[in-house]
């Protein structure tokens, strides 16, 4: 059956710029999704716990502190250790192109740079995640 997609919007690290994360969270909600928002200053472990317990279809990380190369791989590793390595992760923020490449190699599904329109992000989520089906086990 069709159901609303569940998306976690999380802000890892110490940066406090939550304008973008909140705008994205609202846009995803207005596109009919259920958005779980974690608030600021989340550790990778907290993000993993939220993704697992909320059983989300997608984890979106918003990060502008420059610590992405430390924190994003931590989240991906944590998800794998929690048996949730199948939950896709996307990253938004100020990520230099070479870092974006490296993050994708480390398992990030997509990186959205500054100026990405919320429409493009919503379309991406629908296209890439919308087909996910539930399966036992």
């Amino acid at each position: 059956m069709t159901r609303p997609l569940r998306v976690l919007v999380a802000k890892p690290g110490l940066d406090r710029h939550d304008r973008g994360a909140k705008v994205i969270a609202r846009a995803l909600r207005d596109a009919g999704m259920e958005v779980i928002y974690t608030g600021l200053h989340q550790t990778p472990a907290e993000i993993v716990a939220a993704a697992v317990q909320e059983d989300v279809d997608l984890v979106g990380l918003s990060i502008l502190s420059g610590a992405h190369m430390t924190l994003v791989p931590r989240v991906i590793q944590g998800l794998r250790e929690a048996g949730a390595g199948d939950i896709p992760v996307v990253v938004g923020g100020i990520i230099p192109p070479e870092d974006a490449e490296e993050l994708k190699k480390a398992g990030v599904l997509e990186v959205f740079g500054p100026g990405s329109s919320t429409e493009a992000i919503v379309d991406f989520v629908r296209r890439e995640i919308g087909g996910r089906v539930n399966a036992l086990g």
Binding site: R26, E34, I36, T38, G39, A50
Partner: peptide, 8 residues
């Protein structure tokens, strides 16, 4: 859609 912020 819904915005669920209680985890904050």
């Amino acid at each position: 859609g819904a915005l669920l912020g209680d985890r904050i």
